[in-house]
Design a protein around this nucleic acid. Sequence first.
DNA 1: TTCGTTTCTTAACTTAAGTGAACGATTCTA
DNA 2: TAGAATCGTTCACTTAAGTTAAGAAACGAA
Lengths: 193, 193
Amino acid sequence: MQDILFDFISKYVSLTEEEKNAIVSLDIFRSVKKGTTLLKEGQKSKESYFVLKGCIRTYYVLDGEEKTTAFYTEMEALTPPCVISKTPSEYYVSCIEDNILLVSNSDMEVEVNAKFPKFDIMCKTLSEELLAKERMDFDEFKTSSPEQRYLNLLQKRPDLIQRVPQHQLASYLGIQPQSLSRLRARIVEKSKE
Amino acid sequence: MQDILFDFISKYVSLTEEEKNAIVSLDIFRSVKKGTTLLKEGQKSKESYFVLKGCIRTYYVLDGEEKTTAFYTEMEALTPPCVISKTPSEYYVSCIEDNILLVSNSDMEVEVNAKFPKFDIMCKTLSEELLAKERMDFDEFKTSSPEQRYLNLLQKRPDLIQRVPQHQLASYLGIQPQSLSRLRARIVEKSKE
DNA sequence: TTCGTTTCTTAACTTAAGTGAACGATTCTA
DNA sequence: TAGAATCGTTCACTTAAGTTAAGAAACGAA
């Protein structure tokens, strides 16, 4: 399981055995059961998550309704905004499946970075990449209709549609569950013609 | 004008006079006329922009239509995704107003960072912050209606509504120009009641 | 200044999303 | 296992956005 992490890191920097051992000795691998809430609205947190196996989601509760805005699966990392801004969280983070996560603490990162400056470089590269990706995703969302967004998702992350409940997918697409149902029926209808 | 830049940088790291001089000597300040296109679709580029004065926008051309997805004004920075991914740009970047920009080149940054490691730290912090902000903006977009988005913009960036053409604002809000007109009329109508 | 283009608004019509309700099917839990 | 809650779908109705078209206003270039 650690190999997944080191494969990932190797895309950014190359690690010595010593460095790998240092990471392993931090004891940051954690198994988390489906349904577990990792972060609640109003909480403060210093934790970032890297998904080795499973799927986590972020959601807001607005007018008593859950609004799911993102999913993180294998090889994806989440640092909640509240960790960066050091303010109480505006959203929840919870586990859609049984997960194996890498949980890091921002205090710990300071230490690790002091020891291995390489890590700062990796974090910089990684967040620049993630920012570019996030902007492209946002642009794509803005410039397409709910139906196009669903078809896009079908192309780009077909696994999500299988492993995630429909009503969570719906808010991820920016619509109501009923609209997603209808839209799917419409697509099937079109494909019959 | 340089002071704006150093004020900005001072929020992340403190610079010595030597370091400030090194930056000034890079000669990266540039005046750019309204209407200038800084980046075209299909082009490769290594340039990032920091707006000291003015406003730039990013837009796609889809089916012959311009789709504006972002505006960058004073104290905001843009590194186009194509600079990160090293692939041809998917969008255009152009100047809405006469601008004073700081234009940096990714090759140059490597040099500067080698000389002043401080810069890597700043870039890391900055992109982490921007990523967190981008995600929150995206979340807000997903969870609100076009009308709510417009009202939000009115709160958060009222200047944009003044300085940017309506049809560009419309696609920024993810709707057609006619819908923005109608929506504005609707809001005025409501406020009369 | 004038002509042409772009921009903004309005209107009528079409299409799709929001809403509220109902109904099985599935899942959870006591 | 029985009962309750959740989930996905469908329907009818409402509301708002997309589309097409037209006209007025603002802007730019010759």
